[in-house]
Design a protein around this nucleic acid. Sequence first.
DNA 1: TTCCATGCAAACACTTTGCACCGTG
DNA 2: CACGGTGCAAAGTGTTTGCATGGAA
Lengths: 152, 152
Amino acid sequence: MADDLRARLRGKGFRLTPQRQLILDAVERLGHGTAEDVLAEVQQQVSAVNQSTVYRNLDVLEQLGLVRHIHLTGKAPTYHSTSGPQHFHLTCRNCRCVISVDQDVAAEFTARLRAEHGFVVDVGHLTVFGHCESCDRSDPPEDPHAQPESPA
Amino acid sequence: MADDLRARLRGKGFRLTPQRQLILDAVERLGHGTAEDVLAEVQQQVSAVNQSTVYRNLDVLEQLGLVRHIHLTGKAPTYHSTSGPQHFHLTCRNCRCVISVDQDVAAEFTARLRAEHGFVVDVGHLTVFGHCESCDRSDPPEDPHAQPESPA
DNA sequence: TTCCATGCAAACACTTTGCACCGTG
DNA sequence: CACGGTGCAAAGTGTTTGCATGGAA
């Protein structure tokens, strides 16, 4: 498994380093997490991995298709591993909950965009904003700048 | 028209200032623009409007529902006026072109999300990433954050 | 032995904030 | 004439970069 990773990296001229491995592990362990979350998670393990290393490696891992990022807020992007079924996200602007939805639910929609506009949707990157079931009845003044806690 | 604006502002305890008016005008003139674009546009008119004033007022105007912002890139958000028909955006990650699509095209999709997840979509804020017609055939390497092929 | 990768600190882009003054209502 | 708005500069976030050193292949 580490050898598989090594091979994938080598294939694009990258090397396998302990940091690289730790960062990928951290993303998988976290489910969804920002670069900052990943940094914290990694540092909990052994000790020092630098911030820049995290940014640089999330980039590399994304180039390899091993992780992906989405924008759940206007701020820092959230990374997740690409193992597991592809899905997209609904995020409630009120309570900030995040719902993962199987990509099939978007199939008709994306087919239509392809047919009518020749546009090929990257479903894995899709984030749909709105209000979740419980926040929809009451529609309290939304705070455009409130910050979320770590999403599930 | 300015009186209408004045009234809307007053209704929420805001005042009508020349800067406020200029900023709203600039957003309408630009179509789509970042805070920076708006600043530049406004400064071209008369002279001084401060950066902070632009940020503060885009906020106010958004609270009033007169402008909206979307995220076309991972960076600075793009503002547009809410006059005109509601639409959402397709943005090509390769050539960065932006296609505006009438909200009706998303109607089935949003209805489904509402039915299956009780989630009410804010269509005006929706941005769909992918590849446009011309960039889909060739998938040339690109900008700093171009996305790779889909993972397994 | 060759390059890619890392750590570190400084630079960056974008946005927010504190404060004194200004001007609308 | 009170209170919201503005300009200015400084402080914040989140991210990137230059450079010397370190380590995988």
